[in-house]
Design a protein around this nucleic acid. Structure first.
Lengths: 241, 241
DNA sequence: GCCGATTTGTCCGTATGTATC
DNA sequence: CGATACATACGGACAAATCGG
């Protein structure tokens, strides 16, 4: 949807960095040069650069210029970043994806579930348990809790494809922010039943609360990953104090 | 350092959200109201709100307002977020911290180290191995590689306190961005020698490349954490396509 | 369903400050 | 010291989404 100017500049610069039109450690053109190049205001250029900075692509230096610090990284089989569906991640990671539904039932949040998921006690939820395959190997076990009201008409058939695609497309739900916590946990009996951990006795676990554009939490998910095929990436910037 | 207006507004709103001056799911005052309240321009208010959004504190909704979606989360013993030193994290997590130096030697980057750390082959580095204690229990094993030129006068005594404090204070180095990768790996002999893993055969591993404000990478670190005391938090926003 | 008021999103031009060279 | 480059801030304009009458 975004045909915004800053977004166009952001994408254009991003591609030029990735394809090494600007080399690692090289300076980008100055803001004023970019203003002339894209025929827009300086604020608009600055917004695009701010996004590239947040991505860890560039580093603006007061009085000097903006340096390209992008280095292509060696990637594991499955790399997590941003809010992506399993399907989207599989495509980005160039893996063939398949999903098997293990459970698909309505439940009402009791005290324990409410505390864990962040939903209120008594809320009607849809619980889905899914096994995720990459290139034919079972690697991820997902436990999803969806707000029942937010996902009308969701069927096991849809859940075996892409729930997000269905929500954003058919239902018209807009996914906005996701709060995630990453931990390492002991394997469970369910994990062992479905996934060959090859000696590991633990898994990488991402738990997330996802909100729609009305600020309503519609999903709680625990995603349990095989250690060998899991990688999580992040860029942090230090805040001056 | 930042006495910027937007930063003042950001901190002020952040505190009001944390202390529930605005309740969970409640709307913040409109941008125009805040403009009058802080007697500044709308762009300045918007910048503060943008930072709160990135923190996962609020959710702006087109045409409606800005909603507070902050919920205090249950924290593990050691929670990672932003660029923080071990000392800073310990203080935030309210733990008593102690560091024991296991190794402290100069090395020159060979082919293998260069590939792993991102430094060029032949670069002179300072390698430090440190064991981190929280409340008297050894929980984290750090392998640091510092660019020797960037950390002049660094001694084991300083390394047992806070390297970042020394770099930012005495050396005058400004830490800017850090690229991190999180994985789960098998324990090593060194891990087992120093840390009681209580049945786990793996650890949570954060590898990071850290850059100064000149865009120069001055550090590569591998930080190996005890699973029971480790937690990593993140907020992601979905980009419209 | 329409209209006007409100609210957030995008963009512009300008001015001033600060750091670097 | 002057020129260049990024950082902060202002005020204004219009668009797009929402909401109430």
């Amino acid at each position: 949807m975004p045909k915004a100017i800053y977004d166009h500049i952001y994408k254009d610069l991003k591609e030029k960095i990735e394809t090494e039109v600007y080399a690692y450690q090289e300076m980008l053109p100055s803001e004023n040069t970019l203003v002339r190049e894209y025929d827009c205001s300086r604020n608009t250029v600055r917004r695009a650069i701010a996004e590239l900075t947040a991505d860890g692509y560039v580093q603006p230096m007061h009085g000097k210029g903006v340096r390209n610090i992008f280095q292509p990284v060696e990637q594991a089989a499955y790399t997590v970043g941003g809010i992506e569906s399993f399907k989207e991640s599989s495509i980005r990671n160039k893996k063939q994806a398949y999903t098997r539904i293990l459970q698909f039932t309505d439940i009402t949040a009791d005290e324990k579930i409410a505390k864990k998921t962040g939903f209120r006690k008594g809320t009607l939820l849809l619980y889905i348990q899914r096994l995720r395959f990459l290139n034919g190997i079972p690697l991820i076990l997902d436990h999803n809790y969806f707000l029942k009201d937010a996902v009308p008409g969701l069927t096991p058939e849809i859940a075996s494809q892409s729930v997000y695609e269905y929500l954003e497309g058919t239902v018209g739900l807009a996914i906005a922010t996701s709060k995630r916590t990453l931990t390492v946990e002991h394997v469970t009996q369910i994990d062992e039943k479905y996934i060959d951990l090859k000696g590991y006795n633990c898994m990488a676990v991402i738990t997330s609360q996802t909100f729609d554009d009305n600020g309503i939490q519609f999903e709680y998910t625990q995603s349990r990953h095989h250690p060998d095929y899991f990688q999580f990436q992040d860029v942090a910037t230090r805040k001056t104090r």
